[in-house]
Simulated scan of single mutants.
Amino acid sequence: MNPLPSDAHAPRRAELQIAYALLFIAPAMWSVNYLVARWAPGVIAPHALALGRWCVAALLLGAFCHRELVAKRALIGREWKQFIVLGALGMWVCGAIVYVGARTTTAVNIGLLYAAAPVLIAVVSALWLRERLGTVQVLGVALALGGVLHILVQGQWHALSEVRVNGGDLWIAAAVLSWTAYSLLLRAWSSAFGPAARLTLIACGGVAVLIPFTLWEAIAWLPSTLSWQSVSLVLAAAVIPGAGAYAAYSFMQRTLGAARVGVVLYLGPLYSALVGWAVLGERIEAFHAVGALLILPGIWLSTRR
């Protein structure tokens, strides 16, 4: 019998290489949402933005995987409850609720709260999903978290004592817990669908949850007006931090596991600083460089086998 060819494991190696590259690309895609959230007040309401974002994202994703959706349409009924739950967690709470919270809290507070998500994901993954988290990975998580905190307090550690909890903080805290649950359930629940098809169906579940809240918002709280600005924000949020980033996250989770992929959130403060510098004219300070020197090795250590 002939031995297996030397490239027998090439597809798996290629998937790993793509997944590790996406660890650094996906946060850049998510950082577009920082701009959208900043420009949205006065242009489009939070639920309307989230609903438009995921309607467009579902259509885009469905265009790429419609054959699989048609071929496996009989299986949708088996998993529809999962799609509703994941859609509520990932598209409603981590979408519209984040936009609501961002209206009444500061960027520092949001960052500090979201910095807890990778730690929660890693710890619960080790306890519940039995994903191994060794000493090296724990050291990587600690380094990355230290880098995030250094950036968030702008190198002034006494600023930690100045953080105050307000209504917006509570909304963001709910989003952090929701993202943790979304990440873990996405990994724990098996599916008959590939990453793109599954994300399409989850987005449809999120749309179903968002519709009644969007109607209530438009009638009772904050109506939106149709304009080129609002349409542009919806399209930007749908294409880049919507379909693109979430599809990348699903692929990385399937390939690397929930605990390792959770650390991509640590790159958020770095990428937001770059976006702020390139688009909004904000300055990059020395504390950003120090934070990067902690975060990047932390990402490498925490994702090592």
Rank of each mutant, 00 (worst) to 15 (best):
T106I: 06
T104D: 15
L133W: 13
V138L: 00
I97V: 11
R73D: 06
L145W: 11
G146S: 08
L143W: 00
G167V: 14
L127W: 07
R78G: 00
V100N: 06
V138F: 15
V163T: 03
W157K: 07
T106P: 02
V148M: 03
I97H: 07
G155L: 08
Q154Y: 13
Q82V: 00
A122E: 04
W157S: 11
I110H: 04
E131V: 06
E131Y: 06
T104N: 05
R103N: 13
V98Y: 12
V119E: 14
V153P: 06
L75G: 08
G147D: 08
L139P: 10
V165N: 09
T105G: 14
E131C: 06
G134E: 08
A96K: 05
L139H: 02
G147T: 10
L86M: 04
R78W: 06
V136N: 11
A116I: 11
A102E: 10
R73K: 01
Y114V: 10
R132A: 13
L120G: 12
R132H: 14
V148T: 07
G87Q: 02
A117K: 08
I151G: 01
C94G: 05
A142Y: 01
H158I: 13
G90V: 06
I151R: 08
G134P: 10
A74C: 05
F83S: 03
V98S: 01
L120C: 06
S125F: 02
G140K: 07
V93N: 10
M91W: 04
L127S: 02
G146T: 15
H158C: 10
V98K: 12
N166E: 12
V93K: 12
Y114F: 07
A159E: 14
R164I: 14
A96H: 05
V124D: 12
F83D: 00
T104A: 01
L127P: 12
I84V: 09
S125P: 02
A102K: 02
I151S: 13
L152P: 06
L152H: 03
A117M: 09
S161Q: 09
V124K: 01
W157A: 02
V108I: 11
Q154D: 07
L149Y: 11
G134Q: 10
A115G: 08
V148F: 12
R164E: 12
V85P: 04
A74Y: 12
Q156G: 12
L113D: 01
G77P: 02
L143N: 07
V93I: 10
G147S: 15
T135M: 10
L112F: 05
I97Y: 04
V98F: 03
H158A: 13
W92M: 10
A144T: 15
S125L: 00
A107H: 09
V148K: 04
L139C: 00
M91V: 08
H158S: 15
W157E: 11
W128K: 13
W128T: 12
V141E: 06
A96C: 12
G134M: 14
W92N: 08
V141L: 11
S125K: 03
H150K: 05
Q137H: 02
V98R: 04
G146A: 13
V93A: 04
R73V: 07
